[in-house]
Write a protein that binds this DNA or RNA. Structure first.
Length: 323
DNA sequence: CACCAGGCGACTC
DNA sequence: GAGTCGCATGGT
């Protein structure tokens, strides 16, 4: 018999931001649990439900200034769990200033200045990206949600009554298929105790054995994700790549999106295509050459630069970069 | 109904 | 050691 999870009083806070495009950031393929609900974003961080809303910037004096409003049922004193995740304390302008001043970067930046990196939980990030191979972002979201529903701890969700009051057409459209997440991401220990068959029931196919192996390594402390964060980049990457099913791309995603390695530069097929076309148009460059170029050309915030390139060609450059 | 999707690893030659 | 191929599943 399950105990009902009663909603606690909600608490809210407002955070002033500059050059922070919340929607672009939450949908940029870094994290997979955010859902658009009535013009807001709902997600789960650790064991907390949270709703975010970004007010449109209207001041002509500060066109890139805005407010992010957060609502949750956690005690209202300490918001570090959220500000750390959103990396609100980053000096974003300083990071952008380290980008190389070349045409591809200028174009990508002109397209969107507010794309940010998140600081996710390393286990959730690693597990999510193990699921990501040969899947599209929507499918990854579905698989992650299935895993959470089946293996995650139930958590309190926001006030549903409040949500139902809003019913204009645009909100209804945004609400489409937007199931509110009610479960925490499953722990490594919980997944380690599952069978490969059970995991496969979450539609993850051949990735099930990889996820299971990674869960066992993390749960048994054979792989210490906290320690990974303190290693040099190359050693940290090698450590993650000990997991079967974790190659360089998935390792770099985990390092960049959750372990604080801002210089990690994941190269997937799209970024490879972009680098090839934008920086090596004449000669054909091999993968190792591109990796070396990425590690030396984009500077200490290469990973953020990669996000800008990826975002730019995902939303605008698909036609220009088709093979 | 083919074809492919933010890869990886095993298998060729 | 550098290219090719199978792997599950769902969406165009």
């Amino acid at each position: 018999m399950e105990r009902p999870l009663l909603a606690r009083p909600l608490s809210s806070a407002s955070f002033p931001v500059r050059d922070y495009n919340l929607a672009a950031t939450l949908t940029s393929g870094q994290a997979f649990r955010w859902r658009a609900v009535n013009g807001t974003w709902e997600g789960v961080l650790q064991n907390r439900w949270v709703r975010l809303h970004q007010a449109a910037p209207h001041s002509p004096d500060a066109p890139h200034a805005s407010i992010i409003e957060a609502t949750t049922d956690a005690p209202p004193h300490d918001w570090r769990w959220l500000t750390d995740y959103l990396r609100l304390d980053d000096d974003h302008a300083a990071a952008l200033a380290t980008f190389p001043d070349d045409k591809p970067m200028r174009t990508a930046l002109a397209h969107c200045r507010g794309l940010r990196l998140l600081r996710q939980n390393p286990w959730e990030c690693l597990a999510s990206f193990i699921l990501s191979s040969t899947k599209q972002i929507v499918q990854i979201q579905q698989c992650v949600e299935l895993l959470c529903e089946r293996f995650g701890e139930p958590i309190r969700s926001g006030a549903p009554a409040e949500r139902r009051q809003i019913s204009d057409h645009r909100s209804a459209a945004l609400c489409r298929d937007a199931a509110t997440p009610n479960f925490a991401f499953p722990t490594a220990a919980r997944l380690a105790s599952a069978s490969e068959i059970e995991l496969r029931e979450c539609k993850i196919g051949f990735r099930a054995k990889y996820l299971l192996a990674a869960a066992r390594m993390v749960a048994s402390a054979e792989l210490d994700l906290a320690k990974v964060q303190s290693l040099p980049l190359d050693a940290a990457r090698a450590e993650l790549m000990r997991c079967p099913g974790v190659g360089r791309k998935i390792a770099d995603c985990t390092l960049l999106f959750s372990c604080g390695f801002d210089a990690a530069f994941p190269i997937d097929v799209w970024v490879e295509r972009a680098l090839q076309q934008l920086y090596f148009a004449k000669r054909r460059a091999k993968r190792a050459r591109l990796e070396h170029f990425a590690a030396t050309h984009f500077g200490p915030h290469a990973g953020l630069a990669q996000q800008y390139l990826f975002h730019y060609l995902r939303v605008a450059g698909k036609k220009e970069l088709k093979r």
